[in-house]
Design a protein around this nucleic acid. Sequence first.
DNA 1: TCAAAAGTGTTAGGCATACACCCATGT
DNA 2: ACATGGGTGTATGCCTAACACTTTTGA
Lengths: 228, 228
Amino acid sequence: MSTSTSAQAARPKHPMPFVRVEVCVLGLSESGLQVLLGQREAEPFAGQWALPGGALRIDLDEDLDAAARRVMHERLSLTLPFLRQMVAVGSKTRDLDRAPWALSVAYRALVWVDQVQPLAGKRMSGLAWRPVDEAQSDHSLAFDHRDLIALAVRQTRDEVEALTLPGGFVPPTFTLGELQALCEQILGRALDKSSFRRKLHDRELVRPIEGAMKGGANRPAQVFELCR
Amino acid sequence: MSTSTSAQAARPKHPMPFVRVEVCVLGLSESGLQVLLGQREAEPFAGQWALPGGALRIDLDEDLDAAARRVMHERLSLTLPFLRQMVAVGSKTRDLDRAPWALSVAYRALVWVDQVQPLAGKRMSGLAWRPVDEAQSDHSLAFDHRDLIALAVRQTRDEVEALTLPGGFVPPTFTLGELQALCEQILGRALDKSSFRRKLHDRELVRPIEGAMKGGANRPAQVFELCR
DNA sequence: TCAAAAGTGTTAGGCATACACCCATGT
DNA sequence: ACATGGGTGTATGCCTAACACTTTTGA
């Protein structure tokens, strides 16, 4: 649509803020939801725990989502399958040590804890999983990251409650028992089997795969896949 | 918390994107929801209709919300009472005429149409109210502003459905009839009087003001205020 | 035969819709 | 008297939680 003859940067009239992305990676395990945290090495908040993140690189990142993917790929050597933007926060005082004005775009993601081997990265002395309940009441986290964790947990749980199943996170095939266990781990509470299945059926969210059955130490279960 | 000895800006290692805020102002009127649009004078999208917005000014704006308030105050000479962030969008190609990488933080607001007198502003040849239904199907809007309008309408309506009443927008005192009419205008459909009132009562959302009654050409109505 | 998980049916209660109905006031 | 909007009660149906129950396998 643009009729400009040049796509090169006009130097902006005013200085722009320092822009970062932060990612709240939630991890599923038998012992409830976990969150991935790293210990900061540099100011501000040196030594304190924080969400992993990194600066936006306008030379490397096509768009904001790509920036979040790149930053997390550098940290985890893993392309996060389920990544959603939560909110943008920014102010003059956010990161005084590095810039007079800092803006962070916060994302959330969801993985299995055993898919990520906590490793040390740039500017972070290692990464560690922490239970979300613990993190949400930890007032020593850097920046406003405690709020961001609470927001990520709330949004993720709301999505599961509404059975807006995280496409890209749910495995391609599964039994209904596995799917229910997954939702229960995210919610942190038990669900009623009958109600859960009726909802899935009525809203046509899952489809049985003809002939595919999964057997264990008990009665074999029908294997399903997501609709669409 | 920071132990840095200096709060002055370190020059960032990498160039930063051009950051703007855009505001989707929804307007209430007897003829349904409206949205405030302006006609662009400069590239990109010169001549096309767009949401009002402006560049973030790190020298003027304390934080993102303040930036949105300032930008809209310049345009409307009005401090928007109800302002919420929706999403941040950004990419290399967003605004090629002005910058190689552009990021917009989108807000939504809600006002009475008669509180805003459409006037001409900087870089906009006037502002005009347009019905949201019309705007949502108008593919000639600049940038992705059609999507942003749809998002604003959906979020606003969801809030009213859930009776998360827009604090700061609902007048300080009102009758239940007025409140219901307000919600109906936002939703664009009629509500059942009895159900509406029962919900308000059960969730303790409103409180009658002792002795305060509002009379018209019919039976006087109890005046209420929001709880908390 | 038993434990364990799959899978189904049934019941009771909460909530929302729709609608009917009275009340109070100005014209 | 009557139109108008305020205000309240009630019946119906839907959705859900809760729980009981049967089925099928491996151990």
